[in-house]
Computed example of a mutant assay.
Amino acid sequence: MSGRSKEELLAILSGHDVGVPSVKLSAEELKAKFSKIDHFSGVYQFVSNDFLSSVEYNGVFPLPSASHAILLAKYGITYIEVLMEHADAPVAAAKELEAAQELPEWKEKRRLLLERILRDKFRRNQEIRAQLCDTGDRQIEWANSQDSYLGTVRGHGQNHMGRILMQIRQDVKDGLEMEAWLYFNHHMEREASKRPRIILHEQKEGEASKEYDLLQIADKRAGEGGERERRAFFLLGKLKECDVQPLHPSVSRRHACIFVSAKGVQIFDMASSAGTFKNGERLKASFYPVPIMSGDEIRLGASTRKYIVEIDMSSVLTHLQNKKRTAMREQKDIQRAVNNPLEEISHKAKQQRTV
């Protein structure tokens, strides 16, 4: 037995010298202090940006780690050879680039760029995504000696990196992580009215053709699940949650995903074991979207079943035409108000009387 009192032991745990007057920490503060993850090493090495795990940034893939992606975002594509020379040593890559000039937009956009990089890191690696989720609700804080914006220095700072990691963790728990990745990293279209109708025509020799209208399937799923709006992406795989459910043994549970972005309709493989094929060619990387167009042929795994893509833009064009007409009408009203204020006042008064 040490003979120390409970108060002395609490003082030691609080980081204070015994006998020195100090502010006592509450039970909640003690819990936060000793459950906080602030050193990204050992069992928490996976949280570190230096942890070797493939990342895509601005079309460059694979980058060996989040640190390599951050250096690329910070200094530009000019230094890609330096990064690849130190593929297994992100610290050495950073040291070699110490004298390089930062890109003008880095400082202003670094939080957004970091979030994109970290979201991509955890989306591509299911194992570390599960490990992040297993940290529960513990505070994550990047304790370092220099950067008090992305982390903390001697306990003080904005800790944006820790906040991003905790938000990704929450998104994983809520089932929203992939959707957030699609919005942040691949600019998935947010407005339903701007998403075209996508139809997959299933064909297999000796069988009648089958049609999958993905928007109709999504609407039906949203209605049955009591959701406010349909999901913005479409899944192909064996699970019940998938919009198209091929039963071939080589098809994975979540095999591929189709979504609409600013670049048009795109598809990516979801780390399936047997691959996704576009026009006979296997997609080269998982979670790396490629464009698809009307007439393209999609095949999953070793299945001989083909899906011919049809993209119907008519509803989007109607929406854009309506927006254009509305804008022209508003412009006309503004011009009338500028040219003849009295006439505009009379026009508004007439509208109010008819309401």
Rank of each mutant, 00 (worst) to 15 (best):
R230I: 05
A232N: 15
G264L: 12
E98F: 00
T276S: 10
S273D: 02
F122G: 05
E96Q: 10
A274I: 13
V309K: 11
R221A: 14
L30A: 04
L30C: 03
H255E: 11
H347A: 13
S148L: 07
R110C: 03
Q45D: 06
H347E: 11
D147N: 12
T78C: 05
A302L: 15
A192S: 14
K33D: 09
M161K: 02
Q170T: 13
S303Q: 09
L300Q: 02
A349L: 08
A274S: 15
R138E: 03
A89M: 06
E105G: 12
E241T: 13
A274W: 09
K220Q: 04
L114T: 15
D134P: 02
G237Q: 07
H68C: 02
E56R: 06
I311Y: 08
V47Q: 06
K36A: 11
V338M: 14
A11T: 15
G76I: 06
T78P: 12
G280C: 09
I217R: 00
P90Q: 01
L235V: 08
K24H: 07
K238N: 02
Q170V: 01
S2M: 01
L13N: 02
K238E: 08
V55C: 02
S22Q: 05
A73S: 12
H186R: 02
R231M: 10
D38V: 03
K95C: 00
T152I: 07
V290A: 07
V18D: 00
L83I: 06
S35K: 03
V172D: 04
K284S: 14
M293C: 01
K324R: 13
M166L: 05
E56M: 10
S35R: 07
R325G: 01
K263E: 14
R197N: 15
E85L: 14
E343A: 10
I311D: 12
G301V: 08
A285Q: 14
L97G: 08
D50Q: 10
E102Q: 09
E28L: 11
E330H: 05
H86Q: 09
F61K: 03
A180Q: 13
A192L: 15
V172R: 09
D296Q: 02
G162F: 08
R228E: 15
A222H: 10
A285I: 11
A271V: 15
S315G: 12
P62A: 08
S145H: 11
E189V: 12
G275K: 05
S14T: 07
